[in-house]
Design a protein around this nucleic acid. Structure first.
Lengths: 120, 120
DNA sequence: GCAAGACATTGACAAACATCTATATCTAAC
DNA sequence: GTTAGATATAGATGTTTGTCAATGTCTTGC
């Protein structure tokens, strides 16, 4: 409905968006934040482009920032649920977490109202 | 390919991700950054959930931050290509820019390598 | 023209963050 | 056990950013 006349007469009352649990919202914000930094986005894109997990040393080699900075970015991406890590000996291998990407995509789709999301 | 043996023997050389033009990368980062702030994400969700554009005054009414702060968030979202604004008299109406959302979604899909993106 | 109201801009400030150097931890090889 | 190398953590620093109060701009109605 929402045909209530406003005091100022500017418009109708907006409808409420789909409820978003606090935990899910926090995770979503963390994921967006993780991808919102140029270097970190490139790190993620490198990792996500591989068929197999990438050695951390290769990530360090590819970027113009220091090893601790790369390590920090990897940690942020991991805590955002976008990549996973597995260790073999002294090496750490990072791979894209497809569930994280799927969650992000699902959230994007959920932003639009149902009728419009279907059309375009 | 990429079966080259590394000096350290840790792994294969990672393949290059899909090239991302600087301008497109910048726009992508701006969009992620715009959604990476809790209040701003909620503002966007409110706007995107509507079938028709929302009056700015309604956004101000709904959030616990000041009017200038809301105005700032709206500007960030607009400059990120996620919402558009149209004015009628003294009022400003904000609506979701579906192209911005589509662009974001397309980027997410492009992160994974082709074979995996199809399956997962 | 003037007053009122809606929205945008400015300037200031505290918190968050990306980055570095230095150091710690942990594994493998000898 | 000691050394070397890969990765993670800690502390410091300059920049970015979210927020507010104050003010500016622009439109409407009298």
């Amino acid at each position: 409905m929402s045909t209530k006349v406003r005091p100022g007469g500017c418009c109708d009352v907006p409808t409420d968006p789909t409820p978003l649990p606090a935990a899910e919202r926090e995770r979503l914000v963390a994921a967006f934040k993780a991808l919102a930094e140029p270097t970190r986005l490139d790190v993620f894109r490198l990792i996500a482009a591989q068929a197999a997990p990438v050695c951390a040393c290769d990530v360090v080699d590819r970027f113009a920032v220091s090893q601790p900075t790369v390590s920090h970015h990897l940690k942020v991406l991991r805590e955002a649920g976008l990549i996973t890590v597995s260790r073999r000996g002294v090496w750490a291998y990072y791979g894209a977490d497809r569930r994280g990407l799927a969650r992000l995509r699902g959230a994007l789709d959920g932003f639009l109202p149902a009728p419009l999301a279907a059309t375009g």
